[in-house]
Measured scan of single mutants.
Amino acid sequence: TTYKLILNGKTLKGETTTEAVDAETAERVFKEYAKKNGVDGEWTYDDATKTFTSTE
């Protein structure tokens, strides 16, 4: 399943996707990605669109 991440950081904005077996796995991948890029925001998830959003 393809999951999408929308980053709305103070210094980094953008989108990326990952293939994962479930939302929990995708969330771990995306949170590590955000951390590596210095984004520490509030997380939301929309199951209908398989989209995570992190907003600082």
Results as ranks from 00 to 15, higher is better:
1 T>I: 14
1 T>N: 12
1 T>A: 10
2 T>I: 14
3 Y>H: 02
3 Y>T: 02
3 Y>I: 02
4 K>V: 09
4 K>I: 12
4 K>S: 05
4 K>Y: 14
4 K>A: 04
5 L>T: 01
5 L>Q: 02
5 L>D: 02
5 L>N: 02
6 I>T: 04
6 I>K: 05
6 I>A: 03
7 L>F: 12
7 L>G: 01
8 N>A: 09
8 N>P: 03
8 N>M: 12
8 N>Q: 10
9 G>T: 09
9 G>D: 03
10 K>E: 08
11 T>D: 10
11 T>H: 14
11 T>V: 11
11 T>R: 10
12 L>V: 14
12 L>N: 08
12 L>M: 14
13 K>N: 09
13 K>M: 09
14 G>K: 14
14 G>L: 15
14 G>D: 12
15 E>N: 07
15 E>A: 08
15 E>H: 10
16 T>V: 15
16 T>W: 15
16 T>E: 05
17 T>K: 07
17 T>W: 14
17 T>E: 09
17 T>A: 06
17 T>R: 07
18 T>C: 15
18 T>S: 04
19 E>F: 15
19 E>G: 04
20 A>N: 02
20 A>W: 02
20 A>P: 01
20 A>T: 05
20 A>M: 03
22 D>F: 03
22 D>V: 02
23 A>M: 13
23 A>T: 09
24 E>P: 09
25 T>I: 07
25 T>P: 00
26 A>C: 01
26 A>I: 01
26 A>H: 00
27 E>Q: 11
27 E>V: 06
27 E>A: 12
27 E>G: 08
28 R>E: 07
28 R>K: 12
28 R>T: 07
28 R>F: 08
29 V>M: 11
29 V>E: 08
29 V>L: 11
29 V>F: 15
30 F>R: 00
31 K>H: 08
31 K>A: 05
31 K>F: 06
32 E>R: 07
33 Y>H: 04
33 Y>V: 05
33 Y>D: 01
33 Y>K: 01
33 Y>G: 00
33 Y>W: 13
33 Y>I: 07
33 Y>L: 05
33 Y>N: 01
34 A>I: 05
34 A>L: 10
35 K>R: 13
35 K>N: 08
35 K>P: 00
35 K>I: 12
36 K>R: 13
36 K>G: 06
37 N>E: 09
37 N>P: 01
39 V>W: 14
40 D>H: 13
40 D>P: 05
40 D>I: 13
40 D>W: 14
40 D>E: 13
41 G>S: 05
41 G>T: 05
41 G>N: 03
41 G>F: 07
42 E>R: 10
42 E>V: 14
42 E>Y: 13
43 W>C: 02
43 W>V: 03
44 T>V: 09
44 T>N: 08
45 Y>Q: 01
45 Y>M: 01
46 D>I: 04
46 D>A: 04
47 D>E: 14
48 A>D: 11
48 A>F: 10
49 T>L: 07
49 T>E: 05
49 T>M: 06
50 K>I: 01
50 K>M: 07
51 T>G: 01
52 F>D: 00
52 F>R: 00
52 F>Q: 00
53 T>H: 06
53 T>G: 02
53 T>M: 10
53 T>R: 07
53 T>W: 10
54 S>Q: 07
55 T>P: 03
55 T>N: 08
55 T>M: 07
55 T>H: 07
56 E>I: 07
56 E>P: 06
56 E>N: 05
